[in-house]
């Protein structure tokens, strides 16, 4: 298995609180890896580390064999040209049109003729099914369309690695399935390495080649989808079967909690 990303001993804190606890894993090249976990398990924090928006307290993240945790900002920008990110809320710039949003990374990083850029933008928008929406502003689009436009921007520079933060959050099942299909297409047609952070089970079953499950800042599982389904770990079964977490206190503990000490 060829590795696109390798994480070694990643530990991070918010103030005193430890969020990620000594994570080590690798992400295979040309596959869709899903990082799965409940709310607050640290998966968004992990993603922010993988794309270099946050620096860990300890540990290393290697993208194509280069450690991004010790890299200078300028070198990091070189790596960033090769990765694309689709944000949870699409994060399009609201003051410019969809076409300008998609052309922004191209204009910034490649010296090309304006007409060439326009053709590239139309190709990317067509790929995500948004032909004809070039001159719309983000506020004029629906949530699903914004997300597609965000994906078009993420793939504008034909990245090697593509990250998705909660691609189907807040979308109806049909639109979400459309996004899943698009993710599969990007893997099959463009051979991109794709990392998806999500907690939506239907998506996980539809797209994942490889699954990493996070729980309370630590990895509880990593392996293929079939291995996940066959797992008999209690926490994983709870997640897969959508069982609520039962918090039980002894009467003494309960008294302590409500008394506030």
């Amino acid at each position: 298995m060829e590795k696109a990303i390798e994480v070694i001993g990643l530990t991070t804190h918010y103030g005193e609180r430890e969020i990620l606890k000594d994570l080590s894993f690798s992400i295979p090249k040309g596959k869709i890896t899903v990082i799965l976990g409940g709310s607050g398990c640290g998966k968004s924090t992990l993603l922010r580390h993988l794309i270099g928006l946050m620096k860990p307290t300890k540990g290393n993240i290697l993208i194509n064999g280069k450690d991004i945790t010790v890299m200078e900002e300028e070198k990091l920008d070189e790596i960033r040209k090769k990765i694309g990110i689709s944000f949870q809320g699409a994060a399009l710039l609201n003051s410019i049109t969809i076409a300008d949003n998609v052309s922004l990374p191209i204009q910034e990083h490649a010296r090309l003729e304006e007409s060439t850029i326009q053709i590239m933008v139309r190709m990317k928008l067509d790929l995500v099914g948004l032909s004809g929406f070039e001159d719309f502003y983000p506020s004029q689009l629906s949530g699903g369309m914004k997300k597609r436009a965000g994906i078009a921007r993420a793939i504008a520079l034909d990245p090697e690695v593509l990250f998705f933060d909660e691609p189907s959050a807040g979308l109806d099942p049909v639109t979400a399935a459309g996004i899943d299909e698009l993710i599969l297409k990007l893997r099959d047609v463009f051979k991109m390495t794709i990392v998806v952070v999500t907690h939506e089970l239907p998506s996980v079953f539809a797209i994942s080649d490889y699954v990493i499950m996070l729980d309370m800042g630590a990895i509880t599982f990593s392996g293929t989808l079939d291995e996940l389904k066959a797992s008999d770990n209690a926490r994983i079964r709870m997640f897969l079967e959508r069982k609520p977490e039962k918090i039980t206190y002894s009467p003494e503990d309960y008294l302590k909690i409500i008394a506030g000490d």
Binding site: R48, I51, G52, L53, L76, D77, E78, R80, K81, I83, I85, F87, Q88, G89, A91, L92, L93, N94, L104, P105, E108, H109, R153
Partner: peptide, 11 residues
């Protein structure tokens, strides 16, 4: 709205 993060992540 994460737009600043988006800019950073686009280099």
């Amino acid at each position: 709205a994460e737009e600043v993060d988006a800019l950073t992540s686009m280099g």
